[in-house]
Design a protein around this nucleic acid. Sequence first.
DNA 1: GCCAACGTTGGC
DNA 2: GCCAACGTTGGC
Length: 147
Amino acid sequence: MKSEPDDVSIDDALAAPGQTVAWIGVRNYQARNFMRDAMRMGDGLLFYHSSCAEPGIAGLAEVASAPYPDDTQFDPASKYFDPKATRENPRWMLVDVRATKKTRLLTLPELRANPALADMQVLRRGNRLSITPVTPDEWRCIIGQLG
DNA sequence: GCCAACGTTGGC
DNA sequence: GCCAACGTTGGC
């Protein structure tokens, strides 16, 4: 899961109550569907810093809730407000994310240099999704690099 | 700031 | 349903 560290960094997440943050602001259907349909409590997450000087994997986290509506979609004062969403028919769902560990920064160039990660979805050319699945092999490889 | 890539919007 | 225009993402 990508986060801009100027917005929410791994340190911010670890400093939050219960080391947990609601993953607000996702406004892409595919990314929403991963949270709404594919994630389960306790699933492992890679916490990726994007749109920053040194993009890369900065920590580990886990899914900490079932999916529920993103409240910011209903708030006209929020930059994530969606006028087409209603309480009765919410459009945007999220999960809570519990940060478990800050790791060394596994940088984007390092990820790209690893043949075992060549097909990783987040690294694919043109990928703009802020949430992408990780295969078990990719997960093991990355945990190994961080260990 | 640039720009490739691609998702969304809206007219038809 | 098509598709051009536009907006956003995100690395560089």
